[in-house]
Amino acid sequence: MSATNSSTNGPSDQRSRTSDPAGDMPTSRTVEASGRYAEMSFEARMDTVEFRVHERAHIVVDGRKCVDCSVRGCITACPANLFVPTADGGILFNYEQCFECGTCYMVCNEEGAISWSYPEGGHGVVFHAS
């Protein structure tokens, strides 16, 4: 049993980083000239989701395996943007705001890099309007 954490503060510093290799994707801008609303920031996006965070991580990434990985599909594909490359070629992973979707272990190409399980019953993501 852990304290309930409703959709708040995951490690937010990493989120301001918006990877955009194509270079033309909208990031956080001010209201456009057309008067349309700007895309929201990634933190704001994740703040719309409730996570009842458990104190134990349900997904563990073995960063040593990631050093040998050339594809790094997790970084692009994880819808919650939880995989962050580190300067030494490893991966920093935070489990708190995870959708428990399974994308990461399916796209991961290094056997054993990701140990994946569901969080303890009653914890993790809780959808309301999906």
Partner: peptide, 21 residues
């Protein structure tokens, strides 16, 4: 589709943002 998404370099919410535009 997962394999191409992982390879494509553009994140899912960015692709969604493009559709919204």
């Amino acid at each position: 589709s997962l394999p191409q998404l992982a390879k494509g370099g553009i994140r899912p919410e960015q692709r969604l943002a493009r559709l919204k535009e």
